[in-house]
Nucleic acid binder design. Structure first.
Lengths: 311, 311
DNA sequence: ATCACTGCATTAGTTGGGCTAATTATGTAG
DNA sequence: CTACATAATTAGCCCAACTAATGCAGTGAT
């Protein structure tokens, strides 16, 4: 059953002529005649009264005509909705990021991107790390941005940058004015840590263990902001990615000291679902991130340490 | 654009599988896969996300799925309406008859017909003669029953019977007790006639003229009932079809006398639109009319005149 | 990681449905 | 009755859609 056939029938009724209806659809009178006859056979009902001219629908044909018009209109509407939806979705970049990247970082990149692509729309959602992965897998986000990206068959990982980790302490702390902190300096320090279930915690714990240092964990939180607040009230020291404390260091509410403990970095990556070819808008957004995305605040001075830490 | 394709898509979404959807429609997985791909190409949109199993519709696919379901449901409803309408219409016999036939005559035939065909429905409408023709031509009635049927290219005429015409007068009239009325008996009689624009008037006028009789037309009406009333108040005599006055003659409110003027009959015929093959119910109704339809009230005595007048 | 399993895509080959062109039939108007 | 317009019919061609077979990818197991 073809929609074109229904359209031919509707046009024939509307124009009171099979020929004119056929012309409307760009087919011959013969094709239209055959199609409508076949329709009548299929439905086992006489739709047109051909014994009187101009052509008139039968009783049954009249009712079917109205139904067909509604059907065709419904299909055209659906097609239109689809086109509109496609445009809206294709121009949208849904990003799921962890808090510590999303808030500082993304806002900087979103504005230039929007300027380059005025038709595009960027939706940023800040989530806990595992929720970011979930959102990408469930196709609720086109991109995920997080640290310590998980390896998964369904995920494509694009390394974005590696943030150097620094010792963060209260400005009045005894280590605050050191040029560099050695492993031994941390021995027995009161430490504000990340929650156990976060990869960054495991990375820091491993580095400290390898350096033979034991710290006294006095608090643990699942996000950087809270850790910074704890340090600001002199509850202890911590090890945090440098970009995350750049602002506080700048206004001297926190102290940051480069660490001489292994190569302690926080890898940031973009993830997206594997196999799925990305919409153009998303591709371009990735370009913007990877090109400009070296993690430092524009105009911020770069230390020799930062340079070295980059891959 | 085929409805079957939309159904394949809907089934695939509903069952979360192209294979199962294909099986539902009795085609191979390959056919369904190709059809849905073609649909996506045609609409230029990705409807299904095949990179994750079980199969899931995309954002756009979800919306289109809902629209398609509505479309398919709408079509099935239209098809159902059509079937029901067809049955209702096919079992219906719409009859348009002139008053003088419809009331006396049809009611007798309708009951036997209804008994023979319990599913059928008979709609009887009594109209003025020219309205009967109009109703048949406009396909508002399947059959028309009238006297002096018009010849028309668009109409098929089926002669039904010829009703003998008799002189009708008040029971106290001087001619009421005659066995037969000659032409001369009518000379100068006060006459209640049919309207000029009725064929029956022309038939009677012609017969009288050929017999060399002149009557004095004192009244004229467009229907038999009114003429009978006029005669009943002794306003004059008239010439009417015998079956139309059978009842009044039986109860002695009118007198009827056979006429020896030419072969004066009122031909009754069934008309229907030419070319159009009639629904079975209508065909059978015609059979009933033509077989039983000799125009006499059942049990009514038949005169030698009646016998002779029949073709 | 590897393997087996399931399900979709792809390809090649065949067939029927739908189209055109030409002709015939039919309804309508002058 | 004739002329005209329009629909049905016929013959023939061609593409679209199907099947069968195979390749490929996602998924969950050991």
């Amino acid at each position: 059953m073809q929609l074109e056939t229904l359209k031919l029938f509707c046009d024939a009724v509307r124009l009171r002529s099979i020929s004119r209806g056929a012309a409307e659809s760009g087919v011959t009178q013969s094709a239209a005649s055959q199609a409508i006859q076949q329709l009548e056979t299929e439905l086992d009902v006489q739709l047109l009264d051909r014994s009187r001219r101009p052509l008139q629908p039968t009783q049954e044909g009249r009712g079917f005509y109205e139904a067909c018009r509604a059907l065709l209109a419904g299909f055209e509407r659906a097609r239109g909705d689809l086109a509109r939806s496609r445009q809206r979705v294709e121009g949208t970049v849904r990003v799921a990021a962890i808090y510590s990247v999303g808030l500082h970082d993304m806002s900087r990149h979103m504005q230039p991107f929007m300027a380059m692509h005025p038709h595009a729309r960027v939706l940023l959602e800040c989530l806990h790390p595992h929720k970011v992965v979930e959102a990408v897998l469930a196709d609720e986000a086109d991109l995920g941005i997080l640290s310590y990206p998980p390896t998964s068959r369904a995920l494509q990982v694009l390394p974005l940058r590696e943030e150097p980790m620094v010792l963060v302490c209260h400005p009045s702390h005894r280590l605050a004015r050191r040029r560099v902190a050695e492993a031994a300096d941390l021995q027995g320090e009161r430490f504000v840590a990340f929650d156990h279930d976060l990869p960054i915690r495991r990375a820091i714990d491993g580095a400290l263990r390898r350096a033979g240092v034991r710290v006294e964990v006095v608090m643990q939180f699942d996000n950087i902001e809270t850790i910074k607040q704890a340090i600001a009230i002199a509850a202890g020291v911590s090890i945090l990615p440098r970009p995350a404390v750049a602002k506080e260091v700048g206004i001297r509410t926190l102290g940051a000291v480069p660490l001489a403990i292994g190569r302690l970095v926080r890898p940031i990556a973009i993830i997206h679902r594997k196999g799925k070819r990305l919409p153009p808008a998303v591709d371009r957004f990735i370009d913007v991130l990877r090109r400009a995305g070296d993690g430092e605040v524009p105009g911020g001075s770069r230390t020799a340490f930062d340079q070295a830490a980059r891959p």
